[in-house]
Structure formats: structure tokens, C-alpha cells
Design a protein around this nucleic acid. Structure first.
Lengths: 94, 94
DNA sequence: ATAATTTGGTTTATAATATAAACCAGTTTA
DNA sequence: TAAACTGGTTTATATTATAAACCAAATTAT
């Protein structure tokens, strides 16, 4: 029987964000927006969800006078991502 | 930049169905229901969507006196599945 | 014989999700 | 000083997934 796919990760945008965060120390809002080709509104909402799940940490600060939102993945998020990828393998293996 | 993930395939249940259909000649409704651990209603709806997209063919017949719904994947569906898996690889590669 | 249950589904209503549009505060540019 | 831009958030709407209700026919139990 096929495994459950964590619904929080099984979303194109959230998965994209997590995928990026797995490979960098931290990423700024604008960087994520560009890489995932998402709108700011959608990204904002999805980042909040990942944050509320404890998968990522969002830090709000200022870059000079401009607001700066920086994200990084948490240990819990890494674990969830790995579990998701493992579960997914059953679906996509030939 | 991350690729688009075909929204028709980026759904746990539809992906599960397609994954199964990639590996068998054909599959009955009840078999798919069991393997994907889905409810009949949900499965019925999702099969229709795959069928309308031309990804699968649904054949309704009778097994003696009981209705029998048999599904098989189409060439278009195979192509879509392969494209989806390729796009997904960018998201899950380490 | 007939009532209850099961099989194999479909249809419809509701809950959850994703997305876009509208908005806001502050900043820079014309 | 007005317009446009940056870096977002909030809110409304469209889409999607899911469950619940339903249906017809068959089977089983009384």
C-alpha cells in the first residue's frame, strides 16, 4: 500500500521552498519568490504555514531601511522533507 | 528556476493511481481503491479527472452480474507521468 | 418471502487549499 | 510632492480534495 504524503509538503510552492532551504543556510523572501516564481502573497501565506508547523524559522529584520525576511529550515523540517522524499519514491519508481 | 508540476498529477490520490497504472496492464476500481487506500467516492471523482485529461481510459462492463470498472493508462498519461517525475527530481534531489 | 447487508460504484455538499487581488508602510525617483 | 517601487501582509475568491449521502442490483439472514 502506498504511504501517506505529508500534505504540508505536497504542495508545489511549499515543496519548492523546502527544497531550496535544504540546500542553503538561509534564504531571503525575495530570493525564494524569484526561485519559485511565486507571487508575494502566496509565498507569504505558505511560509507562514511552514513556520507554524515548525518546519522553518522566519526572521524579520531590516536591511538598512528595507524590511528583510530571512528563512531557514529547522531540524524538524529536514526530517519531514526526508520522510516525504522517501514516501514519494514509492510513487515514482519505475 | 523550478519547473511546473502538472497539477493533475500533483495530487496524492491521482499520482498513486497513475503510479499503479504505469506498472500494470490494467487495474480494476476495487484494486485501485485498496492499493491507494481511498474512498470510493474520492477515487471515482479522481479517475474521471484523469480520464477527461486523456491520461487513462475507463472501461465499464460487468463481471457476471456485478459492475466492473477497469482502468488503463494511455500513451499521453505515460508521457505526462514521465514529465512529472523529471520535473519533480529538481525538487527532491540532494 | 422479505428485510438487512454488501458490492460497486456515482453524485453532491462541505472542508481545505491555493491563488490572486487589494492593500499598507516606508522609500526612492521624477 | 506626487508617482512609482520595494517588500511585504491580509483578505477574498477560485480550485481542489474529501467525505457523506445516495443508488441499483445482488447476496445473506430471518
Amino acid at each position: 500500500m502506498l504511504k501517506e504524503l505529508d500534505p504540508l509538503l505536497h504542495s508545489q510552492l511549499r515543496l519548492g521552498v523546502m527544497s531550496i532551504l535544504m540546500s542553503v543556510e538561509s534564504a531571503e523572501f525575495t530570493f525564494l519568490k524569484e526561485k519559485t516564481n511565486s507571487t508575494a502573497g502566496n509565498l507569504s501565506v505558505q511560509l507562514d504555514k511552514l513556520s507554524e508547523a515548525g518546519y522553518i524559522t522566519i526572521e524579520k529584520s531590516f536591511n538598512g531601511k528595507k524590511p528583510l525576511t530571512t528563512c531557514r529550515i529547522n531540524r524538524k523540517g529536514m526530517k519531514a522533507f526526508e520522510d516525504y522524499v522517501n514516501a514519494l519514491k514509492d510513487y515514482i519508481k519505475k
